[in-house]
């Protein structure tokens, strides 16, 4: 700030006024700049809280993405701990929050090590150390998204790929009988792979091993992050209730008799 006053007017006085003006303009300028910076950072971090449906967090990752991002220091110790090299850190420019760990089930599913080395490696608790049994992990939930591709739906095959490869075998994915009413009115029995949410860890073995994964359109069964799949939403993949089950079975029996 230039002072227009004469020097003889008193150096102290004029330096005081100009410094106060300096202070005010400086503070205003800094406040404006920092608000902009804060806005940018805030928006960018909001964008970072959502991540693509095919990127899954390691076992034990805090279900609340905000809490995960508040704890993960992006050190990559979980990446180094993973014996199968499934995990990787998101690079700058990827849609997942910069530097955070994820895996893509279709390429490298989680092999569900019983000792969970990635969780043990995490220094901050972004991966919850309370997870001691890998079968309690909830990295996501499998969903048969490609009902147009699943062999059991359309081709009436008895494909067992996802049910047999599932590490929580016989619990997480089961084949359920269903009467299929075709467009011409004829009926046929088919076996539908059904995910039981209370057992599915979201490891992605089913997605990796789906025979349709190698054809265009990708695997018929996919693991989706919990943030996308509401766990109470079982519209498409619920188990039949015992009553329904009985009804189906008696109907089938009546048909065959």
């Amino acid at each position: 700030m230039k002072s227009t006053k004469d020097k003889s007017d008193g150096y102290l006085k004029c330096s005081f006024t100009s410094s106060r003006r300096d202070f005010l303009t400086g503070t205003a300028r800094a406040a404006c700049g920092m608000s902009l910076l804060g806005l940018g950072l805030g928006l960018y971090s909001e964008v970072g809280k959502t991540h693509p449906a095919n990127t899954l967090r390691p076992p034990g990752a805090r279900a609340d993405e905000e809490e995960f991002l508040g704890r993960c220091v992006r050190c990559g110790l979980c990446v180094r701990a993973c014996p199968y090299d499934c995990l990787r850190l998101a690079e700058f420019g990827e849609p997942t929050a910069t530097g955070t760990p994820y895996f893509i089930a279709e390429e490298f599913p989680c092999y569900m090590c019983p000792d969970i080395p990635c969780v043990k490696a995490c220094p901050t608790g972004a991966l919850d150390p309370k997870l001691t049994d890998i079968k309690d992990a909830r990295m996501g939930v499998a969903r048969v998204v490609g009902t147009d591709r699943c062999l059991n739906y359309w081709f009436n095959h008895r494909c067992l790929a996802c049910t047999t490869i599932c590490p929580v075998r016989g619990k997480a994915i089961t084949l359920e009988k269903e009467i299929w009413v075709k467009s011409d009115g004829t009926k046929q029995l088919r076996f539908i792979p059904t995910v039981n949410d209370e057992h599915c860890t979201g490891c992605g073995m089913c997605e990796k091993n789906c025979p349709m994964a190698r054809y265009g359109g990708g695997a018929a069964i996919k693991v989706l992050p919990l943030s996308i799949v509401k766990r109470e939403d079982q519209r498409y993949h619920r188990r039949f209730t015992p009553e329904e089950q009985k009804a189906i079975e008696t109907k089938a029996k009546a048909k065959t008799l």
Partner: peptide, 12 residues
């Protein structure tokens, strides 16, 4: 901003 957004903001 870390307090407001609940994330480690500078690491973005």
């Amino acid at each position: 901003m870390s307090a407001i957004t609940g994330t480690i903001v500078w690491e973005f």
